[in-house]
Amino acid sequence: MQVTLAHLKRGERAIITDVSSIYIPLKLLEMGCLPGNEVELVQMAPFADPMYLNINGTHLAIRKETAIHILIEITHE
């Protein structure tokens, strides 16, 4: 099974490996959500949605429906 951003737990860090550009708004890419960048889950709202992330130094929140299209590799517990 592929690991996506939606699998990330609070406080965990990961590297973004692939972003499926069809489902991801360009705006998110422009905010730094690109392959190779580091991502950390800062906080989750109830039901793990939306997710509050720190991507490459930018803090932002996205919905789970977007997070499942971002592939990651978990690096740090």
Binding site: P25, K27, L28, P50, H59, L60, A61, I62, R63, T66
Partner: peptide
């Protein structure tokens, strides 16, 4: 309308 949701969480 493209319903995407990205909110920056500023300092």
């Amino acid at each position: 309308s493209k319903s995407f949701f990205v909110v920056e969480m500023p300092n």
